[in-house]
Design a protein around this nucleic acid. Sequence first.
DNA 1: GATACGTGGCT
DNA 2: TAGCCAAGTAT
Length: 424
Amino acid sequence: MTRKLDPQNQTKETVIKRAPLPVTHVSEAAPSRADIEQLRQDLLSHYDAHGRTLPWRIRPEDRARGVQADPYSVWLSEIMLQQTTVAHATPYWKRFLSEFPTVIDLANAERDRVLTLWAGLGYYARARNLHKCAETVRDLHDGVFPTTEAALLKLPGIGLYTAAAIAAICFNEPTNIVDGNVERVIARFFAVDAPLPKARKILRDLAGSLADPVRPGDYGQAIMDLGAKTCTPRKPLCVECPWQWKCKAYSLSTIQACAVTDYPKKLKKTSRPIRSGAVFVLTCGDGDATSVWLAQRPDDGLLGGMMGFVGTQWRDMKADDPSQDLQYAPYPKNWELLDGEIRHVFTHFDLRLRVYRAQISDSDRGHNINSGHEGSGAGDFASRDFDIAALEAGKFIRLSDIENYALPTVMKKALQHALQRAEL
DNA sequence: GATACGTGGCT
DNA sequence: TAGCCAAGTAT
């Protein structure tokens, strides 16, 4: 039996024949062939009996009849589920599929519309790549998803995990599906002492040694389910685990040498720095006609391509200087610094955001905002030069229409803050 | 290989 | 509260 389970590791013939397990990292030798067969069977039986019904999965009875999943909806789910919980992603998946029933529909959509539907899901590069990927499938693949792991891997936003998952689930290719769940299950099963993230390669190889080539998609989903529902990060339910009989961490835990949750070992994360800055919420009109000034952020970097309020840079607390805030205002006006701060957590920093607010009349709007070139006076804030580029990129958006714009959560918080404080 | 990249839920 | 975690990818 020749099969490739790892696109990064294709030089050798089979998965079973891996490099010898490094004794320093693993507490026990690899399971026997017979054990591996038993483990596969245990997991798949467990999956057939208890597998979750998720909307992008085909139903068990259809699966039994050999029906294959739809690559478009599986791909959509896999991208959305990257670093995201099922509960959070599911409503988005339904909305996307409803508005874009096929990959062609998605490719033909405006990117801004895609970003709007994605708003709130986070990691917005996923949405930009999602659209790019759909365009690629439309333009380079006749509107049909490629069917191999290697070809899928070339598409934007599809990495090692997603390519393996789609190829296995939709096309029955015997790939090695490794996500965070699998890493945890495998680290416990083999009691791998090497800490994450350095242990990735070891865990990947160990995972590949167990992966089932006959039902690769079911196996992959089964082991991910096992990690999500049974072999959970905090309180694993070893009592119901089909792999308990061979699990090294469980075995060690029964002789009180360790707890199952000691695995996977991981390096301590450095604490998140705190950054701060300010945003300016400029409103125009009132009541139902209230509009706010929003600009599209540059395509690259944080919240790339999303809409947001104009503001200062977000800098390390120590480098942030509130006395300079008004130089970044989108419009010369008597800005009110609102009480309180927005707090928002990003992956790599905590943000504290001051919110300024000002209101302009419709006459101001017509006269100044759209021309935006005055500012020759000296010293007077009301006549300074302001950021014309930011102005030209922005526009007034009706609050009643704001759901049609790609506003990330941090900006929604700022808007809420400004509107609430304004009422006081 | 390390770092950038969102958000919400749970303890 | 503060930290951890969730079906990772791109650079």
